[in-house]
Design a protein around this nucleic acid. Structure first.
Lengths: 138, 138
DNA sequence: ATGAAATTCATACTTTAGTATGAGTACAAT
DNA sequence: ATTGTACTCATACTAAAGTATGAATTTCAT
């Protein structure tokens, strides 16, 4: 958000500079004046689009962004969350173990801990709960 | 989208009009010139924001209906679909059996058939695939 | 450096899940 | 009436998932 303000401010300064240049050198020429105005319009149009996209990204897409606060609240560790995502993809413990280069028993431990933390009885239920809490993507 | 183009065009014309007025009446006054430029900037910033918001809205919102055609294509029966939804809720075979007033072996049969039809190895994967194909809610 | 939390792994066990096979019932279409 | 489809159920089995316990290692902040 600070970046946005910075960029915004810079562009205003830049445009004022262009205006000043225009004022002292080309003030009476229609063509350059229209060019300046067109440039300003385009630049601010782009700025508006970008900012809107970024802010609306955190609003509309927030329904698909992970809720880190909830993860912390439930005491789910990084590794556990990683495993949880793999479980949500429909992978078996063995497949997850291979993908993460650990043993199957390690995955079993993680899954077991996840079930407790998510208050679930099965991995399918854990996925369902995790999606409801928005702690896993989509 | 046609509305957007219309609004966009109208505003360009409006701004050019303002420019013309400015040209013939206030061309030498800095204050009004800056005002015009500021107005242009703000207007186009708003236009950019609105357009961006509308387009991104139409992208993010459109997605939440079940695909009956796909269900038929895969040859999934009513009962199977019913079971599939229960599986997606994270229920066990036994729990589903109780809810549907049938035996657990019946559910096992349905699930087994579903796995074949959805080309899945596990129930978790079946849920994942089903959601991707939009044949189960959310 | 030390203690807490995180990660890893194993073994032994119980419980679900999933497969294979066969079969009975009901119902709609031919 | 016969055929096909959907639904039901059982038995017996294999495979995967999940629990419990204990322990070694690593990481990280106090």
């Amino acid at each position: 958000m600070k970046k946005t303000i910075f960029i915004f401010t810079s562009l205003i300064i830049a445009l004022l500079a262009i205006f000043q240049i225009n004022k002292y050198h080309l003030i009476s020429q229609d063509v350059s004046m229209q060019f300046v105005i067109a440039t300003i319009a385009v630049v601010f149009f782009i700025i508006g689009s970008v900012i809107s996209k970024k802010t609306s990204h955190s609003i509309t897409v927030s329904s698909q962004e992970i809720n880190q606060a909830k993860i912390d609240e439930l005491g789910i560790s990084n590794r556990e969350h990683e495993v949880l995502c793999k479980v949500a993809e429909g992978l078996s413990n063995k497949e997850i173990a291979h993908q993460l280069y650990v043993s199957e028993s390690t995955i079993k431990t993680h899954v077991s801990n996840l079930l407790v933390k998510l208050n679930a009885k099965r991995r399918t239920q854990a996925v369902q709960i995790a999606k409801k809490l928005k702690i896993i993507p989509l």
